[in-house]
Design a binder for these strands. Structure first.
Length: 271
DNA sequence: CCGGACGCCTGTCGGC
DNA sequence: TGCCGACAGGCGTCCG
């Protein structure tokens, strides 16, 4: 997926096109997403005004008068702004048509993404309830990671990919941050010192900020609202570089499997 | 509570 | 060229 940098890139791209626009129509061509799009979903949105485009974790939050449209991009989702009518292709599942003739189009080949309507009157959505802190916020620190990791035997990579611990970090940026912090991805989370967690927290912040600056990482599917790919792929030091020389020491990068996810690392630099 | 495995989908790539 | 398995940016659910 789209991890935090790709979702934030999308948020920044779509907000100016959506702000203070009225939804004139909603077209749902495929309701079978990660969570089914409920009947009547369209009716909640039509006629309402988009006031703000926010983000929490990897969720985009379109705040309207009567509620919030929550969008998750899954593994292969993207959002585009169309300024002229464009025929939908096979994986273009939802269009949000605006009062100025433009439209927001949701595309997702694998359909792991989802859309939810959250009425203002309702409770907090269950998917938002158990999320950890935003990694770019001041509350996310090495001390925080240290405190949350005590007595946990899970490997540090799946630990920082756990959205209840810290949000927004997926498989790419977890691998990159651990390489930058020189921590072995398989090291048990409960066996990392305070200073090393301080380094890791800083590495996560730095990697995410730099990736946002490059418009995210495009491997295959991700594009911003204007169709542009993200360029952070050029900066990746371990992800997708199995067998290539480590940028620090020249050692060929190795891989292992952690939590059913491929993990590339340097056996010399990361311990 | 914790941690690991599974499944949801489509597309692509490497090996034979 | 075709077929088959493995793998891919996520994550909720189930089971031990």
């Amino acid at each position: 997926m789209p991890e935090l940098p790709e979702v934030e890139t999308t948020r920044r791209g779509i907000e100016p096109h959506l702000k203070e626009r009225v939804v004139s129509a909603v077209v749902v061509r495929e309701r079978r997403l990660r969570w089914p799009v409920p009947p009547g979903f369209e009716d909640e949105l039509v006629g309402d005004t988009i006031r703000k485009v926010g983000r929490r974790a990897k969720y985009l939050l379109l705040e309207l008068g009567a509620g919030t449209l929550m969008i998750h991009l899954g593994m292969s989702g993207s959002l585009r702004i169309l300024t002229v009518p464009t025929p939908p292709s096979r994986h273009d599942h939802v269009d949000l048509c605006l009062d100025n003739g433009a439209a927001l189009r949701f595309r997702d080949a694998r359909r792991f993404g989802s859309l939810h309507w959250l009425p203002n009157t309702g409770p907090t959505h269950p998917l938002l309830r158990n999320l950890g802190p935003e990694p770019l916020s001041p509350t996310f620190t090495g001390n925080y990671l240290y405190a949350r990791s005590r007595a946990r035997r899970v490997a540090v990579k799946p630990f920082i990919m756990n959205q209840a611990i810290v949000v927004g970090v997926g498989n790419i940026y977890a691998a990159e941050a651990l390489h930058r912090a020189r921590i072995h991805p398989g090291r048990p989370a409960g066996r990392i010192s305070i200073p090393r967690y301080a380094t890791l927290a800083t590495a996560i912040k730095t990697i995410l900020q730099e990736a946002i600056g490059q418009g995210g990482t495009t491997l295959r599917d991700f594009v911003a609202e204007n169709g542009q790919p993200g360029y952070f792929k050029q900066q990746l030091r371990v992800y997708g570089r199995l067998g290539q020389a480590c940028s620090n020491c020249g050692e060929p990068l190795r891989s292992l499997r952690l939590g059913q996810r491929g993990t590339v690392y340097c056996a010399v630099c990361q311990r």
